[in-house]
Design a protein around this nucleic acid. Sequence first.
DNA 1: ATCTCATATGATAATAATTATCATATGGAA
DNA 2: TTCCATATGATAATTATTATCATATGAGAT
Lengths: 159, 159
Amino acid sequence: MEGSPPLLSPAEADRRLRAAGVRVTAQRRAVYEALAADPLHPTVEAVHSRLKKNWPSLPLPTVYRIVEDLAVAGLIRRVASDGGPQRLDANAERHQHLVCRACGRMEDWTSAGLSGLSLPRSLPDGFSGETYDIRIVGLCRTCSAKAEARGIIPKRRKS
Amino acid sequence: MEGSPPLLSPAEADRRLRAAGVRVTAQRRAVYEALAADPLHPTVEAVHSRLKKNWPSLPLPTVYRIVEDLAVAGLIRRVASDGGPQRLDANAERHQHLVCRACGRMEDWTSAGLSGLSLPRSLPDGFSGETYDIRIVGLCRTCSAKAEARGIIPKRRKS
DNA sequence: ATCTCATATGATAATAATTATCATATGGAA
DNA sequence: TTCCATATGATAATTATTATCATATGAGAT
Ligand SMILES: [Zn+2]
Ligand SMILES: [Zn+2]
Ligand SMILES: [Zn+2]
Ligand SMILES: [Zn+2]
C-alpha cells in the first residue's frame, strides 16, 4: 500500500558515512532505517517517535544531530516546506513532491515529463543553478474527498 | 538595483483585507509595506527589525499575528524553504524562486518557459493538483564568486 | 459625530523546535 | 588491545512561534 522509497543498501549507506568522515554507529543506522521506512517525509519528532519502540533511550537531541550528520553525508535531505518543523526525505532517486495544502501530507512523485526538465542556461544575476525541485500543491485524496462533501477547504496555517 | 516586487495598491490591499473580514489597521498596513519593500523573502524577525525605526513599539508577536492575517487575506504567502524560520513573500505576480544553497538567499525569478508549464492532468492517488512551485537551487552571484576563488562550497545547515 | 461592540494591539507567558554543553562511552586506526 | 577523536546521553539554553488577557480601536448603527 505504502511503498517504501528506494533506500541505500546498508553497505552503501555505511560507505557514504565513512566517506564523509561520519562514523558508523548503531544509532545512525537506526535513524536512517526509520527514515527510509517512512515515505511521508517525517519530521525529526516523527522519526524519534518511530524509534521509541526499539530505541527507547535515544534522546531527541541525538536524533537531531544524527539527521544533520546523515544530511551532510548525503544519505537524506531536508525537503522544502512552508514553515513548521523541517521535513526529511530518504528517497535517493530523483523525484518531485505532491503537497496537500489542507493536511500537509507530502508524497513522492516521479514524472518523466517534469523530471526531464532541464535548467534554463541563463539565470539572472550570475546565479549558478545546479538543480531544481518542484512542488505540486493541491489536495490529497482524503482531503479532496472531504472538500467534495463539504465545499471548499481553506488553506491550513502550517504545512 | 534591488527592484521591489509588484505590490498591491493601498486601496486594493485594504479591499482584500476587508473582503477577508480582516480589519484595516495602521499596523497591518505597515507590516504589509515592510514586506512589499523587501524582495528577499524575509523572516518574520526580519520584518520586525525593518519596522523598528518607524514602529519601535510594535511587538514581535503582533507581527506574527499580522503575518498570519495577511496570509489569510491573500496579500502575502509563506514560501517553501528547507527548515529554519518561515520566509515570506509579498510578490503578487506568478513567479518562481532562485535559492542559494550556501547563504540561503532567495530571489524571485519569472520565466516564460517555466511559468507556462501546465500541470499533468493525471496525478497519482486521487491527488488533485491546483498549482505548483519551482525552486531552482544553486549558488547566488556572491557565493558563486567565493566558490570560484576557494573551490567547492559545502551545503549550509539551514536555509 | 457619538455609541457600541467585536476585534486588534501590547504586554507577557507559554509552548514548540532546535542547538549547545559536557561527562562518559565507543568506533576504528595502530 | 590500546588509544583517542568523536558519538552518545543527559541536560540546559536558545530560537521560533503561539496563547492569554487587559486595554484600545475600526467600523457599522444610531
Ligand atoms: Zn490532505
Ligand atoms: Zn520525497
Ligand atoms: Zn549565496
Ligand atoms: Zn517570491
